[in-house]
Lab assay of single mutants.
Amino acid sequence: FACQWLNAHFEVNPDCSVSRAEMYSEYLSTCSKLARGGILTSTGFYKCLRTVFPNHTVKRVEDSSSNGQAHIHVVGVKRR
Rank of each mutant, 00 (worst) to 15 (best):
N7L: 09
G44V: 08
C48L: 13
L34M: 07
E22M: 05
S42F: 12
D15S: 04
R36F: 06
A8R: 09
P14Q: 13
E26Y: 07
P14T: 09
E11P: 00
V74G: 10
D15K: 04
E11G: 05
S64L: 06
I39N: 14
N7P: 02
L40G: 06
P54G: 05
E26F: 12
P14Y: 03
N7V: 06
N7A: 03
V18F: 03
A70F: 02
V58A: 08
T41M: 09
T51D: 09
S42G: 12
A21T: 09
H73A: 08
T30W: 06
N67A: 15
V18S: 11
I72L: 11
S29G: 12
V12N: 06
S19T: 12
N7H: 05
E22W: 04
Y27S: 01
K59A: 07
C16Y: 15
Y46P: 01
Y27W: 03
T41I: 05
A35I: 03
A2T: 13
I39Q: 15
L34K: 15
N67V: 03
C31D: 07
G37C: 04
F10V: 02
Q4K: 11
S32Q: 08
W5Y: 14
K47P: 05
W5R: 01
F45A: 00
S25W: 04
G76C: 02
Q69N: 15
G44R: 14
H71Y: 15
C3L: 06
G44Q: 12
A35P: 10
V75W: 09
F53L: 01
N13V: 14
Y24P: 00
V75Q: 11
G76Q: 02
V61F: 11
H71M: 08
T57G: 13
I39T: 15
I39W: 08
R20Q: 15
V75M: 14
Q4I: 14
S25Y: 03
W5P: 00
P14D: 02
T51F: 05
C48M: 02
R20C: 06
R60V: 11
S25M: 09
A2S: 13
E62P: 11
V75G: 15
K33D: 09
E26W: 07
Q69D: 05
W5L: 01
T41V: 07
S66R: 09
V75R: 12
V52H: 05
R20F: 03
L28D: 03
V52L: 07
Q4Y: 07
R50C: 05
G38K: 04
G37D: 15
H73V: 09
N55S: 10
I72Q: 14
D15L: 04
V52R: 03
C48I: 05
S19A: 07
Q69S: 10
N55W: 13
V12W: 09
R60D: 04
G38C: 07
Y24H: 01
K59N: 14
D63A: 10
I39E: 15
A8V: 04
N7C: 08
Y27P: 00
S65H: 13
Q4G: 12
S19E: 08
S19P: 08
R60S: 11
S66Q: 13
T41Q: 04
Y27T: 00
D15I: 15
V12C: 08
A35L: 08
V75A: 13
S17W: 05
I72D: 15
S32T: 11
Y27R: 00
R50P: 12
Y24C: 09
A70V: 11
S17E: 15
E11F: 02
C16V: 10
V52P: 01
Y46L: 06
S32C: 07
V77D: 00
K59Y: 14
K47Y: 02
S19D: 11
V18G: 02
C31K: 02
I72P: 15
Y24E: 11
K47Q: 09
I39H: 07
I72H: 12
E62C: 07
F45P: 00
Q69I: 10
C31H: 13
K33S: 11
G37L: 04
C3W: 01
Q69V: 10
G44M: 13
V58K: 02
L49S: 01
G76A: 03
E11Y: 05
A35C: 09
N13R: 09
H73W: 12
R60N: 04
S29H: 13
C16T: 14
Q4V: 06
R60F: 10
V75T: 03
W5F: 11
F45T: 01
R60C: 04
N67K: 14
S29Y: 05
L28V: 10
C31T: 07
Q4A: 10
S64A: 04
N67R: 12
C3M: 02
Y46S: 12
E62Y: 05
T30G: 13
E11V: 08
K33W: 03
V61H: 09
F45E: 01
F45G: 00
A70Q: 05
E26V: 05
F53G: 01
I39C: 14
Q69T: 08
V12Y: 02
M23Q: 00
T51P: 07
V12S: 14
H71G: 11
F1S: 09
A70T: 14
N7R: 08
R20G: 12
A2E: 07
N13W: 07
L28C: 07
